[in-house]
Write a protein that binds this DNA or RNA. Structure first.
Length: 480
DNA sequence: TGAAATGTTGGGGCG
DNA sequence: ACGCCCCAACATTTC
């Protein structure tokens, strides 16, 4: 009888359109399904607590999907290279199948494992599944990797379209004696004492089946209005598929093909956002230090401030700017934040508070259920003005104006900043400007029930522009 | 995938 | 009737 094949699940926690699983099943070998909780290899970029919460439920869902097909998901913890040695010894596996990851640490780790498998004479098969277009195939005319989104996306659209997603295998052939598995609960991925995940349980249904239902609902009811609705933070204009995509409960091909009419205005606009996801991964592959160093090296001289109190106020949603505070509390409660709220709150940290973007990047990393190294680092750099195709530094959001434009009735603020819920829409984005009687009637006491703004917008804006100028003159001096 | 400052235009009130 | 002023609305430039 054929020696078993290991299917190594990573961020591809699904059975439909999973090339590694499908190829392993077709090989005819009995299957060992493996997930490794490897806390060591990622170093500082190991998943945060919110991502761990998601991971727990996603693994439970995958385990169930596999069990329905007669395969046990084996859970192991430890350095992946070491776990592999053990599992291969225990199972006598002759082949390993997995789908590629693009994080620098994962590429290094996988290269080591490949070398080890070669030495041991074990076959291995790597597949491309988590992106629509393989980064290596997308080059500028000069043969460089793209640094500007629009030409990048044009090149994507000119490339052969992504394959149709493959069906989930109906049945699987399991290895007769699956290796021992850890108990998922013993990994303690869920928070205890205190259990802060109540908001997340309310906000999400985790796993492949739920993800597929969400996608179908979005494609049927919302994508047509995506372009006009996506910016409104209090409405259901966006897909909220990001964590499902990050953990691979859906493939980007599933999404691409579910948007039934990409030629519609909404479909185009939505697929373009998938394009940004591609672009971010493309950047991370081309620039392995993207999470830690500004792509535009001039920004290494940017005069950021150390201000723990301000950073804390930002993290806790107590800046005195209702939109920023709603955004930060949405993040804390649900593990997710609306795209526009991400731009506004990130811009506020960097430009109003003059705090290094890497501190915000770290906070998002720890608190987002969709925390993704490529997206998170590329987008923080984009907001900071030091990234690829970045927003110009002087594009400084006015949080009150952004609120008035994109949360006109204040629904978003009311949901996450309940102490302001009684304020009229006219003042909800700028309570400091409300007459005393209005505040009293709404039960708001500035400085008591809700903070005064920690910085004045106009002053902070001037300060940020001056800081940018000082960086530019430093750079000019340095190069002279 | 901004906002503020500054410039331009055109309609209506009015002497 | 005409030109002047005001200012809203829109456009352009600047940060």
């Amino acid at each position: 009888m054929k020696s078993p094949a290991i299917v190594w699940f990573r961020n591809d926690l699904r059975i439909a359109d999973n090339p590694a699983l499908i190829a392993a099943a077709r090989s005819g070998a009995p299957l060992v399904a493996l997930y490794i909780l490897d806390d060591e290899s990622p170093g500082p970029w190991r998943p945060g607590a919110a991502a761990h919460w998601w991971l727990h439920h996603s693994l439970a869902a995958l385990s169930q999907r596999l069990a329905e097909r007669g395969v046990q998901l084996t859970l192991r913890r430890g350095r992946a290279q070491y776990v592999f040695d053990q599992i291969i010894a225990e199972t006598g596996a002759g082949a390993v199948f997995w789908n590629r990851l693009y994080e620098p640490w994962a590429i290094r780790r996988d290269d080591e494992i490949i070398a080890q498998l070669r030495e041991d004479g074990v076959e291995f098969h790597c597949f491309h599944e988590s992106l629509l277009f393989e980064p290596e195939t997308l080059r500028t005319k000069a043969g460089e990797s793209f640094r500007v989104f629009t030409p990048f996306w044009r090149a994507c659209l000119a490339a052969p379209p992504p394959d149709r997603p493959q069906q989930a295998p109906k049945s699987l052939h399991a290895a007769p004696l699956p290796p021992d598995s850890d108990d998922l609960d013993s990994w303690r991925l869920l928070p205890q004492n205190p259990d802060w995940a109540g908001g997340m349980r309310k906000a999400w249904l985790v796993g492949e089946t739920a993800a597929r239902a969400e996608l179908a609902d979005f494609a049927r009811h919302h994508v047509a209005d995506y372009r006009s609705e996506r910016d409104f933070m209090g409405r259901v204009g966006v897909s909220r598929l990001s964590p499902h995509l990050h953990f691979g409960e859906l493939s980007p091909r599933d999404v691409w093909h579910a948007i039934s009419e990409p030629a519609t205005i909404g479909g185009d606009a939505y697929l373009r956002e998938l394009g940004w996801r591609e672009f971010c991964h493309h950047l991370l592959i081309a620039h392995w230090d993207l999470p830690d160093r500004p792509l535009d090296r001039n920004f290494e001289r940017f005069p950021y401030r150390d201000d723990e109190a301000a950073l804390d106020a930002w993290r806790n949603g107590r800046t005195g700017y209702p939109l920023v505070d709603a955004a930060m509390r949405e993040l804390w409660i649900t593990g997710w934040m609306h795209n526009r709220a991400r731009m506004v709150s990130a811009s506020f940290l960097i430009k109003h508070l003059l705090i290094d973007w890497r501190k915000g990047e770290r906070w998002f990393w720890d608190t987002l259920v969709d925390a993704d190294l490529a997206n998170n680092s590329a987008n923080w750099q984009w907001v900071a003005g030091c990234g690829a195709d970045a927003a110009p530094y002087f594009r400084i959001f006015n949080p009150a104006l952004q609120g008035e434009k994109f949360d006109p009735d204040g629904a978003y603020v009311r949901r996450y900043v309940p102490e302001l819920a009684g304020l009229d829409a006219r003042y909800i984005h700028r309570p400091w400007a409300a007459p005393a009687e209005v505040l009293r009637a709404a039960g708001v006491r500035l400085g008591v029930t809700y903070p005064h703004p920690i910085v004045d917008h106009a002053e902070a804006r001037q300060r940020a522009l001056a800081a940018f100028e000082s960086m530019r003159s430093q750079v000019a001096l340095g190069s002279a």
